[in-house]
Nucleic acid binder design. Structure first.
Lengths: 282, 282
DNA sequence: CGAATTTTTGACTAGGTTCAACGAGAGTGG
DNA sequence: CCACTCTCGTTGAACCTAGTCAAAAATTCG
């Protein structure tokens, strides 16, 4: 259902990992090829399974190719806190790469395709292609900024604002790797209990808050889709400023209504699959 | 190259910046000297003033020499979220160093001494001394881990647990640069409204929660001191596991006092008297 | 010493949690 | 093809943590 979050191999330009790093830092052809050369074959991980286990030894980096994964911490009382969502093109355990042991786990929130890069390969890569190291450094900083942003939003905002902010972020991150388009729903199925673990709310309250957002026509009603009906409204509610994602092409995204409206209007006189291609909404 | 100009009388070993980086990664003498060589003279910043302003351009890194500073975000409604505390030896704006503009501010929570390292100097340093780059990379990851930890703790824990966790963290971070000792109060004056901005609570609730901790004899009663009366109790309450700080010598910290005293190189194995008051730090 | 900041206290309110149960789909095996 | 199970989503009601407002006490500082 929905357009699959899925990267096929139409060439290295279209590889999600390349797209992700390119969204942060310019890479040349040689660097892209060298990077993809080190990728081990993909493996499948089913929802709920660990991609990287908490406490395990570091040997390779896990690159998400498709699906949705999350970084989490287990607390002493059995609660789980999701500290980051990982979308296609994201690297699961970069933070642990210098440390010997993973201090957090990575698990699959939906079915995922994952490819690994051996730690040694990466070490070699950043030496032979320093500019690649720069991209990775920037990627790390971008992740840190997201963490800071979560910290701000989680505590100081109301439940509706928090969810709105999360949706804005996820959508824009999908967009930057070419997996989402304005006005179109995305087949990204985040389970409500995962939303709860990420925003620090109870799943009951997530449910009720989602209903508010739906009733205000900000998001679509289908649970399995991330469908933003009113980007400007959602963004205003969330007080969302995408600067913290450190994407290169900031101009086009930061524009308020006018531009957004134009984009939305543009596709509205053409094809909107949203109403047709996807199952009924209510 | 060149003699250590800015090292104080006790020598460069004792410089907080060296201590901080050394706590994460082993540095040799040449690296320490080279690093300190690039430090510009310190300047004073009064409580409440900005060390780095949000939105300003990046030109140098701010190293905290003494006092307490914080990284913060201003939200649209005027609320302030503190995303990190900076202790002596910490670098205020490392995250922004690759980005052109600071996406967060750094302000002095108490009177601070701050020294700057020009961005260019740092760039040169990590090239001429790769091992130094390694230490900085690790420092960055350590900061990220702290952020993740804050995220977990802010959301999933009760008010008392959150404050307890924060105190454990601050104390241990002070300890690793030699500014705190078990059983002794530290002259670190965190104002309650700052605690509120950091933990996402109201200052009223911070106040009431502090009283709980005091009544349970976990912390001391003096507002201007960070005094941990019952380390084990506080740690248990907070479910504090220092692993996420990525300190090199992890073993010694999780052990009770006797061991700590031995490793810290005390001549006699007398227990440090809590009665002997610690001189005020700021 | 006086002014400003910080800490403390009280009363009231609201947003969010917890518990418990029910509904709706998807997959599975007979 | 249907019943069974499992997970996920939805709903209601009682309860409670923490926020807000307001004001007094204490501390710091010029």
């Amino acid at each position: 259902m929905g357009p699959p979050i899925h990267a096929d191999a139409r060439g290295y330009h279209d590889h999600v990992l390349v797209r992700r790093l390119s969204s942060l830092w310019e890479l040349d052809e040689a660097e892209k090829i060298a990077l993809l050369d080190e990728l081990a074959p993909a493996r499948s991980v089913r929802r709920g399974e660990d991609i990287v286990s908490e406490g395990s030894k570091t040997a390779s980096l896990a690159v998400i190719l498709s699906g949705l994964a999350c970084q989490y911490h287990m607390l002493a009382d059995g609660q789980r806190q999701i500290v980051a969502f990982l979308l296609p093109g994201d690297i699961g355990n970069l933070f642990s790469s210098v440390v010997d042991v993973h201090d957090h786990g990575v698990s699959a929130s939906t079915h995922c395709e994952v490819a690994h890069i051996p730690q040694r390969s990466l070490d070699r890569l950043v030496i032979s292609h320093p500019n690649l190291g720069c991209a990775i450094w920037r990627y790390c900083l971008s992740q840190c900024s997201v963490l800071q942003s979560w910290l701000s939003n989680m505590r100081r905002r109301s439940a509706a604002e928090r969810l709105a902010h999360l949706f804005c972020e996820q959508f824009m991150r999908l967009e930057c790797v070419g997996l989402a388009e304005r006005g179109k729903p995305v087949g990204l199925h985040i389970v409500q209990s995962d939303l709860a673990d990420a925003t620090g709310m109870s799943s009951v309250h997530v449910n009720r808050t989602l209903q508010q957002l739906r009733n205000r026509s900000l998001i679509g009603r289908h649970p399995a889709l991330l469908e933003i009906l009113d980007w400007a409204g959602l963004r205003e509610l969330a007080d969302f400023d995408p600067a913290y994602l450190h994407l290169r092409r900031t101009g086009e995204f930061s524009e308020p209504e006018s531009r957004t409206a134009r984009i939305r209007g543009l596709e509205s006189d053409e094809v909107i699959p949203a109403s047709r291609a996807y199952p009924p909404v209510d």
